[in-house]
């Protein structure tokens, strides 16, 4: 059970982890395009890459599952007590 939660968290975690990198890459692409001087075919490739990044970023932003876990021994995690996880 703890392993399940962990594997799941890691897989979704990876995408959030790269969020910063993806956002930076997108910013770089946009300013590169805006600065100009990029050949047309490269511009289109950059644009495509940018749109792909946008799609990924937006999908991460749409993630709405907050997980509250407790770290016990040896890096094992268990769901936190209900008393902690109170919705607004």
């Amino acid at each position: 059970m703890p392993n399940d939660t962990r594997g799941k968290s890691e897989s979704t975690g990876l995408t959030i982890d790269s969020f910063e990198k993806q956002l930076k890459r997108l910013e770089t692409i946009v300013s590169q395009l805006e600065t100009g001087g990029v050949p047309l075919h490269e511009s289109l490739a950059l644009f495509e890459e940018g749109m792909e990044l946008l799609k990924q970023l937006q999908s991460i932003l749409e993630m709405t599952e907050t997980r509250i876990e407790e770290l016990i021994d040896n890096g094992t995690t268990i769901p936190a007590p209900e008393s902690i996880d109170l919705n607004d």
């Binding site: 968290s9 979704t12 975690g13 959030i16 991460i60 932003l61 993630m63 709405t64 599952e65 907050t66 997980r67 509250i68 876990e69 407790e70 770290l71 995690t77 936190a80 007590p81 008393s83 902690i84 996880d85 109170l86 919705n87 607004d88």
Partner: peptide
């Protein structure tokens, strides 16, 4: 502390700001 107000405040504020965040308490 897993029983104090601190963890609940952190969960509440974090969830409001970024719904997809994961919180790992070590009590």
């Amino acid at each position: 502390s897993s029983t104090g107000a601190a963890i609940r405040d952190i969960v509440r504020v974090s969830r409001r700001r970024w719904p997809g965040v994961r919180i790992l308490l070590c009590s």
